[in-house]
């Protein structure tokens, strides 16, 4: 067993290294051949991918541990942006002067996290399906679709369905080798990497991380081993809410726009990224998120804006059918009856 694990481990490292170097070579080649236009596309693709990857990590955590495709994630993302905008607009934060945007976003993240915990109360509790039955295993998934409808439409009722401007505090762009890089973009990529590194540490080194991984292996054995499943699972939803909130805050700062529908597109792209990388793998979600971001900017550049959906979903469909494990996934995950 240990030997087999070693082999997988080494294989993963090799794949990661191969991917890293391929990406660097592609980047260099693209800059060399296509000049600054392509390089600029690659940078925007990576920045967009940074947001996708955070959301993809949120998806992959819930599926990896609970075999639950959490459809509330897009609405948690959206809640952060819209609540932040509403807080800013309400004038409640005027005391904080020029930092009010940051406090507003923080407020948004808090609301999304609370919403995620609310979802937990209604989905995980009914998680133990009575039969080995496809439609009953879908109960949490269906509940989460219900929450998606509730959150989105309550926000529409409260704030209207138009997209709103969120004042972007950053004006300065960095100019590096003739490329324009926005400060928010750098912030996105760096914070995405920090968060994921921190999350990896939490999962590997801490008690709660070990508990989560034990539940992922087998919930029943986990509770036999003394893991308090009912206490650990909320932590997972807490993480989900915080990850979605962070991604949405970065998105809002980057694009300066919020709308009740902002989560739908990000959510579906993040799912695509997660599957490409392999369901249940954090590294997979990172690479997959970046690939989807790059694919998106590239297909907009080369094929036009209306081709994005088709290219990404076509790619995803092929991956699911030909290599459902994705790049780093585990064979068994996500295959259970649903």
């Amino acid at each position: 067993m240990a030997a087999a694990a070693d082999v997988t481990f080494q294989r993963n490292i090799l794949i990661k290294a191969a991917f890293g170097s391929a990406a660097l070579i592609a980047l260099a080649l693209a800059v060399f051949l296509g000049g600054h236009v392509i390089a600029q596309q690659i940078i925007s693709g990576l920045m967009l991918g940074a947001i996708y990857l955070i959301v993809a990590v949120a998806f992959t955590l819930t599926i990896g541990v609970l075999n639950f495709l959490n459809f509330t994630i897009p609405s948690l993302f959206m809640l952060t942006g819209m609540i932040a905008w509403a807080l800013l607009k309400s004038g409640l934060l005027s005391f904080s002067g020029s930092w009010s945007w940051l406090i507003a976003l923080f407020g948004g993240v808090v609301v999304a996290t609370v919403a995620s915990l609310l979802v937990e109360r209604f989905t995980y509790r009914y998680f133990k399906a009575k039969h080995g039955d496809a439609t009953e295993h879908a109960i949490p998934l269906v509940s989460s679709l219900g929450f998606l409808l509730i959150f989105e439409n309550l926000v529409i009722l409260a704030f209207g369905s138009e997209s709103q401007r969120f004042p972007v505090p950053f004006k300065a762009d960095l100019h590096l080798f003739g490329l324009v890089i926005g400060i928010p973009q750098i912030v996105s990529l760096v914070s995405a990497l920090i968060v994921v590194a921190a999350l990896s540490y939490v999962l590997k080194q801490t008690k709660i991380g070990r508990a989560l991984r034990t539940i992922a292996e087998n919930p029943e054995i986990a509770s036999l081993l003394g893991v308090e499943v009912t206490q650990v699972v909320p932590v997972l939803f807490l993480l989900t809410g915080m990850l979605c909130g962070l991604a949405a805050a970065l998105f809002t700062v980057n694009y300066g726009d919020v709308s009740p529908f902002m989560g739908d597109n990000i959510g579906t792209k993040a799912i695509a990224g997660m599957v490409l990388g392999g369901i249940g793998s954090i590294w997979g979600a990172i690479i997959g998120g970046l690939i989807v971001g790059l694919t998106e900017t590239m297909s907009v550049h080369f094929l036009g804006g209306d081709s994005v959906e088709m290219v990404i979903w076509g790619l995803l469909l092929i991956v699911i059918i030909v290599a459902p494990r994705g790049l780093f996934g585990h064979a068994a995950l996500g295959k259970g009856k649903l």
Binding site: N67, E309, G314, K337, L338
Partner: peptide
């Protein structure tokens, strides 16, 4: 035939992706 190769979450996502591809093709 391809969809039935998949199970669980993968089947949900495969059918979802199929619909997205159809809508993409129609749009283009």
């Amino acid at each position: 035939f391809p969809v039935l190769r998949t199970r669980g979450v993968y089947m949900v996502l495969a059918t979802f992706a199929f619909a997205q591809v159809v809508s993409g093709v129609l749009l283009r």
